[in-house]
């Protein structure tokens, strides 16, 4: 980016400083493919898009409340990456029904959302947010690594960019899991609680379904990721001296539009302004 500020002349005409944006080549904001999605591909794209959207929405709530300013910036980055993924995925999903990413984000209700229960769980304290990030980022890394090879060019392109970003998210959450688990007695206690609160929602991530069968070669089979996921998190948990929690397994149902009670509140907040002004553009 070739912005520059002229700071020598005191009385140059532009009080904003001469900011030259010539020569700034802006990358594409969204990943767009040449094709229109089929209904099945659109459905799958909204599984992934809704996961990213809901998680981004959650992280957005941390900004100005993080434990340190540097974390406001870090969580902001993760949230922005996820919004980018959500936009590309929902934009693509929308092509099947001539809807925009915003149509899908702001005008669907819970039964039409396809997000997993894990991303809907509330932020809680920092440990809960980190525990949720740790699980989801590791899953997303495995997912996007393989989705790069998708038979669908648009999904493959989205995955190619996303995998690099979620690699960073994976690392960020790993660093914090280690620090919280091995920091002080209090942080360890909170990290253990957080992990056990989040764990019931892990199983749902790796469940297959008829849509996956129909999208052989295009979608990534969720169950195929479980081993890699377990192997990726094992050394971190070992180093953190954290045990895999045993206990409840949530029934889930997010992929079929059956959600935890949290989603309704999250969507109500997200959609309130848009719904108050139907037809308006912003």
């Amino acid at each position: 980016m070739t912005n520059h500020i002229e700071t020598d002349a005191d009385d140059h005409a532009d009080d904003h400083g001469h900011v030259a944006v010539d020569g700034t080549v802006l990358d594409a904001e969204l990943i767009e493919g040449p094709s229109v999605a089929t209904p099945d591909v659109a459905e799958y794209a909204s599984w992934l898009g809704d996961d990213s959207l809901v998680l981004a929405q959650q992280l957005g709530a941390w900004i100005s409340r993080a434990p340190e300013l540097e974390e406001d910036v870090a969580l902001g980055n993760v949230g922005l990456d996820l919004i980018g993924h959500a936009r590309s995925l929902l934009h693509y999903a929308g092509t099947a029904s001539n809807q925009t990413e915003d149509d899908l984000a702001y005008w669907r209700t819970e039964p039409d959302f396809r997000s997993l229960h894990i991303v809907e769980q509330p932020n809680g304290d920092f440990a809960h947010t980190i525990a949720r990030q740790f699980v989801v980022a590791h899953y997303l890394f495995e997912l996007y690594s393989r989705l790069r090879a998708s038979g669908d060019a648009t999904l493959a392109a989205i995955a190619a960019k996303a995998v690099k970003e979620v690699d960073y998210h994976r690392d960020h959450s790993t660093q914090w899991v280690l620090r919280l688990a091995q920091g002080t007695d209090e942080s360890r206690r909170r990290m253990i609680t957080a992990l056990s609160d989040v764990w019931p929602y892990v199983d749902e991530i790796f469940r297959d379904g008829p849509l996956i069968d129909r999208l052989e070669g295009i979608a990534v089979r969720p169950s195929s990721l479980r081993t890699a996921f377990d192997e990726a998190i094992a050394p971190v948990l070992a180093e953190a001296e954290l045990e895999i929690p045993r206990g409840f397994v949530a029934t889930g149902g997010g992929r079929d539009g059956i959600h935890s009670e949290h989603l309704a509140f999250l969507l109500a907040e997200m959609q309130v302004l848009t719904r108050a002004h139907p037809g308006a553009s912003w």
């Binding site: 980016m1 340190e68 540097e70 910036v73 870090a74 980055n77 690392d171 960020h172 660093q175 620090r179």
Partner: peptide
């Protein structure tokens, strides 16, 4: 400059703080 508890977080925070515009 910035504040961080250790070098691992320091370099990550630096990346977040000083290279958001690919600098």
């Amino acid at each position: 400059s910035l504040h961080a508890p250790d070098e691992t977080l320091a370099v990550r925070n630096a990346r977040d703080l000083y290279t958001r515009r690919s600098e």
